[in-house]
Amino acid sequence: MTALSVEGLEKTFDVHVLDDTQVVGLDGVSFDVREGEFLAVVGESGSGKSSLLKCLYRTYDPTAGSVRYYGAEDEETVDLASCGDRTVMGLRGDAIGYTSQFLDEIPRVPAVDVVARPLVEQGTPTEAARDRARELLDALSVPEALWDAYPATFSGGERQRVNLAQALAPDPDLLLLDEPTSALDPETRRDAIDLLETSLGDGTTVVGVFHDTDVVAAVADRVVVLDDGALEAVLPVEAFDGEVGR
């Protein structure tokens, strides 16, 4: 079953503040994502990995192309590249999750509430959401002493774990991950990957950008290789040698 079908996706930025320079972010990218699959997006810095994820999440407005999202069986197909803002908002609420490498924290909100927030916003009672948040923080080895502390005071790795916990909390159907493990030490990264694998056992589709090829090798089913905004290859993970770009 196809979960997501990307076709001819283009993104061009008109940078008015730089004398109307046109910057190409994505140049006609096409690939399919299967339901429950873990798809890794790799490529050199500036190859369009983040742009791709942001186009899928509609943080960027794609310039051309389509992103068909099949969702649940009896739902209608949605073109994420062109559907209305309210459709996107509805999908973001429960079907599609996104997390960047940086935690968008709010000063003086404790970690447990940062993680619980997306659940609360979905309508989960606050205490139930906090329970789930504590489970996730525990699974990601965030020390219990920090749960009620403010993430602004955390180390980079701790913040990233809070960030990841927040992304996993609502249990979305499609999860878009943008380098969520880049700041983690090898041991914590292992925990994170374990958690991703266990929590993703139940049919979550993931499109993720990962900095480390060992993570890609550990979690991905297939690999999308980008080069200068264009699709270079879609490979099974076994065929991926860790080399990106030529």
């Binding site: 930025f13 008015h16 503040v17 942001k54 509609r58 943080t59 960027y60 407005d61 803002d85 908002m89």
Partner: peptide
């Protein structure tokens, strides 16, 4: 006008780009 993160990260209008920058 648009989704807040879109307006912030992919501003289309020249003025918005200036504002964000």
């Amino acid at each position: 006008s648009g989704l807040t993160d879109r307006v912030m990260e992919d501003p289309h209008h020249e003025y918005t780009q200036t504002l964000i920058n």
